[in-house]
Computed example of a mutant assay.
Amino acid sequence: MTPTVRLMTTVWALGDYPSVAGEVIPALGPVLVEACGAGPGMRVLDVAAGSGNAAIPAAFTGAEVTASDVTPELLDAGAKEAARRGVRVRWEEGDAQALQPPPLWGDPAHVTDLLGAGVTEIDARRQTLRVNAFATPESFRDFFKARYGPTVATYRRIAGNPERVAALDRDLAGLARSHDLGGGAMDWEYLLLTATAR
């Protein structure tokens, strides 16, 4: 395991990512599964699967599903959730670092380049998810501060500097406040890209 992979594994194991997937963005997995038309007789590979918020809904369609992630703790959490819900998913540790930084996965041109000439019928759509999980900007901040691995890691790194901690506290609450549609509702944009193998 390279130092970069070891770092990413450690970061994503911090906090409680299954609660982020389950409480904040539970609708995203089923949206992707429906867009792909997953069903009986199909094989599904969920790359960077986390705790299975897309893999588990795909398994419910009758597809043969493999979920891959770099973080064993997330795979373990996903396996327990799949067993609890009575569906079968194959869980495999795998490194998707060669796909480059996840923020670029929201760039249609980058994703199209990753897929290369092996696909056709590319459909890229920007969509929004209505998030109602946080009553206040401060509750948004506190949730991500405690449960989202990269944010937890950042707070740990600056823990000895109260001014930086206070600034990050303000910035996270400010981020939520800037997207607040009223009553704590926010619309989060994501890229839904589907393609057909040649």
Rank of each mutant, 00 (worst) to 15 (best):
V87M: 05
D16C: 03
Y148I: 03
T4S: 11
A54S: 08
W188S: 03
A124S: 05
V152Q: 04
Y17L: 09
V111M: 10
V20R: 02
P30D: 09
W105I: 02
F143S: 00
D69E: 11
R156V: 02
G41V: 14
L115R: 09
A173L: 01
W12C: 04
G22E: 12
R125M: 09
A48D: 10
R84G: 06
P40Y: 14
G39Q: 14
A21V: 14
N53M: 10
D46T: 04
G116L: 12
D142W: 00
V119L: 02
L28T: 10
G94V: 08
A159Q: 08
P18R: 01
A63D: 08
G174H: 00
M1D: 11
T151I: 12
R43Y: 09
Y17T: 08
A27T: 12
P72K: 12
E121Q: 11
G62T: 05
L104W: 13
W105L: 09
V70H: 10
E81K: 09
N53R: 10
S139D: 07
E34H: 14
G22C: 08
N53G: 04
P30Y: 15
V44S: 04
E73Q: 12
R84A: 14
A54Y: 03
E64C: 07
E23I: 00
R198I: 11
V33P: 02
A167T: 15
V152A: 02
E81D: 07
A83N: 04
P102F: 15
V20S: 03
G52R: 13
V119E: 01
W91T: 07
P18I: 04
P162T: 05
A166F: 08
G182L: 02
A146D: 10
